[in-house]
Design a protein around this nucleic acid. Structure first.
Lengths: 243, 243
DNA sequence: TCAAAAGTGTTGACTTTACACCCATGA
DNA sequence: TCATGGGTGTAAAGTCAACACTTTTGA
């Protein structure tokens, strides 16, 4: 950012600039988190009932204003921690939504993140306002522009899922290949061929064979795997592919 | 965004909420544009000398604070228009940078966009502050966190270039396959095989054969093409690929 | 006639898809 | 013994990478 346009290269100090810009500190910024979990072969998102009259009976994502002394990313981690009690979580920034009238309280620009977590690790912190896990395929209308935000984040997730080992954040540490495949199918909303899926996973070399078996399944138990330790990471970064 | 945490589902009006949030309107938001052009087989970015003492002699991207009554995207189009006089330009949001101390004047969160334009169409509007086109491969240090922003945008551009018909925004309307290939090579920083490149373009079916030839080249002239009209677009949106 | 780039196909390696059978386990 | 999913291989189609020669034009 550089507001130098039209002034004739007079150097200003940052402090002087600050004063001349007070007018602009009239926009609030928030973060909104698409917190995703996976349960009963369904992808679910953590929602809360909006407490604004304008949106009564609609659900919204979890978000909050960013504090002036808080990094943007830190704000999203704070939301997660406050709501789920979890701290070491996969989180990725997706897009910033900034139309003028997206928030009825005033000018609020929001940066959307998605988070992936193991739903069984979560004890929801405060259980009022209908905080709950909601199947993502079962959402028509939301408060604010949150439906758009949700869709944008799901789109991004789908783009990444085959290239980057991210979805493992949705599973318990140990899982079978069937569970993993079902998760992919839930995310991509499609069916996958079992043999081809297993081949693909073998090629990616993401998994570590635990030499353990499923227990308490009503059929032949499958092998258990975990994500290779080197691939675990808290936030996603992408690599450029060679063309 | 929903600040309902911990309150016992008392509905508030947006107006009431606005008042209680005044404290938070202490963050400014800006947009920064990585404005890219292509000239002499080089990718270039439009830079200006920073007018902050803290960054004297460093260049910065073109950006500005977002006005309270201006959409975020509109702000980036405004920057472009002010600096280049161009209006109908490819522009894409990339990432929002929000660490506390990234701007010495105070808390400024910035959303980065990249723009692609035909450098020959541009008459730079105000030519002070060393506004100029700078080869992207020749930049080490920039004001603020602008080097990171630039790198992030270039990374995103490289990711998109083979999947989406975006780079055509950098070329004149009519171009030869050689020119197009040289552009791809400049963006990707690599050499491409001519035959394979032409095959790939043929498969993508992005180009319309104009039945015209290059003129004034000191060798056998090549055919001229233009991007198919249906594929022209001002801002980029991605599609999910089927897996 | 020379220099420069245009234009063009094939082969081998690899990747992706489609598809079916026997096996191990728990009920 | 039955139901359920585990586990596995192959062939055909398609994609990708490497590679060289002839043609056209302007100088």
């Amino acid at each position: 950012m550089d507001r130098s346009m039209g002034n004739k290269s007079l150097l200003k100090t940052a402090e002087a600039e600050k004063i001349s810009h007070l007018d602009y500190f009239k926009i609030a910024i928030s973060v909104d988190c698409v917190i995703l979990g996976y349960e009963q072969q369904e992808l679910k998102v953590l929602l809360i009932k909006s407490d604004l009259k304008e949106f009564s009976n609609l659900y919204s994502l979890l978000g909050d204003l960013v504090n002036p002394d808080e990094d943007l990313d830190a704000a999203s981690y704070r939301i997660l921690r406050e709501r789920t009690g979890l701290d070491d979580i996969f989180l990725q920034q997706v897009h910033t939504f900034g139309t003028i009238n997206r928030h009825p309280s005033g000018r609020v620009i929001t940066t959307a993140y998605f988070a992936l977590l193991d739903i069984n690790n979560v004890k929801l912190k405060i259980n009022n306002n209908h905080l709950h896990w909601h199947p993502v395929n079962d959402i028509k209308k939301m408060a604010f522009d949150h439906k758009t935000i949700l869709d944008t984040c799901l789109h991004r997730l789908r783009e990444q899922v085959m290239e980057h080992p991210v979805v493992f954040n949705l599973l318990p540490e140990k899982f079978s290949l069937r569970e993993l495949q079902e998760l992919y199918e839930a995310i991509l909303n499609t069916e996958l061929d079992r043999r081809n899926f297993r081949k693909k996973m073998a090629i990616k070399d993401w998994l570590h064979d635990l030499d353990e078996m499923e227990v308490d399944v009503p059929h032949r138990p499958g092998k258990l795997y975990k994500l290779k330790t080197v691939l675990r990471k808290k936030s996603g970064q992408k690599k450029v592919e060679k063309v």
